[in-house]
Amino acid sequence: MSGASVLYDAPGPKTKARNRLYSIVGAVAVVALIAFVIERLGAKGQFKPEMWNIFNYADVRNNLRDGVLTTLEVFAVAAVLSLALGVLLAVARLSDHKPVRWLATGFVELFRAIPLLITIYVLWVILLANRDALGLSGNGPQFWALVVGLTAYNGSVQAEVLRAGIVAVPRGQAEAAYALGMRKTQVMTTVLIPQAVRAMLPTIISQLVVTLKDTSLGYIITFEELLYTARQMSTNIIVNGSDTYVPVIIVTGVIYVAMCLALSGLATWIERRGRRTKTGVAPATAAPAGDPATAADTGKDPAATP
């Protein structure tokens, strides 16, 4: 039950008429708002063909493409590193050794509390100061500041997500694994983490969407990702005596929203797919009898057979 539909009754004739009136008024208001924005932008000459003609030039397109590729590159490296760090920190926070647990907790809490932008900025300043010692050249300091900052922050968040997933795995799973004589590492890697990842996959991917969005912070440390490239380009291209911020920002915005929607779509798809396999697979695992966990599962949910 979505909750929305219980909030109002099935409309009678009078309400239907009134709702129709509200619909028209609402639609007119929304359209008027959009029309106002377009009108104002049009009045400033933002919709002149010359303004949008810039996207016909190969240089502009190549710039945008390079920007997208750089953004995706940063995202890919940061995503992989943050997932690795997340697993490491989650396991460390659940460790039996107090110092390890404290260190991991301190790291996670520190980087979750500090604004990501400040982490990235501080890393950038440090890397810039030591660029020769570290052998970084050109874009190196910006790139690594962005990647390390994103990794530290998102790794901490992913660690919390994973930890919640591991804690949520039924106790019996770990107990059964220990009873089978598995070691701590084995229980973690073969029993707990796979189930936690499976349960938390949608949340993990939505955090990856956040990672993707946050790559745009590279703009502030002058790293040439999509946003910075777009900004530089729109400052430099002068049409009709004015810069081309509006068209370039609209196009860049569409690219960003499309990328993030694609990734969120993946999360939704996996969530739905995960639900389906859960009900579909249960009877199949019940066949080799003798495994009490699965037997109990299917016993609880006989309606699971498709």
């Binding site: 909750g3 929305a4 909030l7 109002y8 409309p11 709702n19 509200y22 619909s23 609402g26 639609a27 929304v30 969407v209 969005k213 946050d214 790559t215 745009s216 912070l217 703009y219 502030i220 946003l227 900004r231 911020y245 920002i249 860049t252 915005g253 960003y256 929203v257 993030c260 929607l261 969120s264």
Partner: peptide
């Protein structure tokens, strides 16, 4: 988003979808 008026519902959905999937830095540029 929970109202019985379809255009308002559509507006709410569009608002949330677009704003949640836009980097904040880009919003600042806008």
């Amino acid at each position: 988003r929970v109202s019985p008026i379809p255009p308002l519902r559509a507006f709410g959905t569009a608002w949330v979808t677009v704003l949640r999937n836009t980097p904040l830095t880009l919003l600042f540029l806008v």
